[in-house]
């Protein structure tokens, strides 16, 4: 099948060079990348990356884009999977100057349009926060007034990605509320958030409720997404408004 003109460049493999590596938590790092010719992305999209070892062995993985579309440099946040093949390399070995191949941006289902004024409900499990952070960052950069609620489930407080940024957002933004639940640790004594797995009561408390007809995004490990999405539909949110992205695992 002959390729349509103009489509080749967009989805070919490009070379990405790491320019910076920033810790986000004890086992997650954000890689800042230089990708010549990067066409720009929409909030929520991801990239496919491909690593090649010296003997030609290759591995491919996908990572959500953490940076807002308005931010010039592309950022990916990598959560280290224990005994993983690629994430330990990216979080522990890779350094500025290192390169890999990158394809994208991809994804058109799990994206947010900054011009939308529909209320937003964002539900994240662990590193499922990454694409939702891109949405939150864009939301702030464009000065969106869309009422936005984030519910983040993390194992422990130190696992929370972008913790300081989220706390600042919570304090500063009028249109954004941030809710946190910790599922593993005994939370610190002054903890004001929840301390249990996401359940129906928690989602109902976060709101905004089906009548507000929000756009809903749920992202994280597959069991988390299936559970949360099921509860949201039970509560009465329109299933077609609930967008899901499962990370497997």
């Amino acid at each position: 099948m002959e390729r349509l003109a103009g489509t080749e460049a967009r989805l070919s493999w490009r070379v990405a060079t790491i320019t910076e590596s920033k810790p986000e938590s004890p086992h997650a790092k954000t890689l800042v990348l230089d990708v010549p010719g990067w066409p720009g992305q929409r909030a929520g999209q991801h990239v496919d990356i491909r690593l090649t070892a010296e003997d030609g062995y290759q591995s491919e993985r996908s990572y959500s884009i953490a940076s807002a579309p308005e931010t010039p440099a592309l950022e990916l946040t990598i959560d280290r999977v224990e005994d993983g093949e690629v994430s330990p390399y990216l979080t522990e070995e890779a350094r500025p100057g290192d390169q890999f191949e990158l394809r994208g941006p991809v994804g058109g289902y799990f994206v947010w349009e900054a011009t939308s004024d529909q209320p937003l409900l964002l539900v994240a499990g662990g590193s499922g926060l990454v694409p939702l952070m891109a949405i939150l960052r864009q939301h702030e950069l464009v000065g969106s007034g869309a009422g936005t609620r984030l519910l983040l489930s993390a194992r422990t407080l130190e696992d929370v990605l972008y913790r300081q940024e989220l706390e600042a957002l919570r304090d500063r933004a009028e249109a954004v509320t941030v809710h946190l639940t910790l599922t593993r640790d005994t939370p610190p004594p002054e903890w004001s958030g929840w301390a249990r797995r996401v359940d129906r009561a928690m989602l109902e408390a976060v709101g905004p409720g089906p009548d507000a007809r929000p756009r809903v995004y749920v992202c994280g490990p597959t069991p988390f997404v299936e559970e949360a999405a099921g509860l949201l539909v039970e509560i009465g949110y329109d299933p077609r408004s609930v967008h899901t992205e499962r990370f497997g695992g």
Partner: peptide, 23 residues
Amino acid sequence: MHKDGNAIAGVLEEIFTVEVTAE
């Protein structure tokens, strides 16, 4: 555990030459 169509958005776009995960 399984993932979803988003995970092969790149592969699907290579096949269809347009983004299809929102279709």
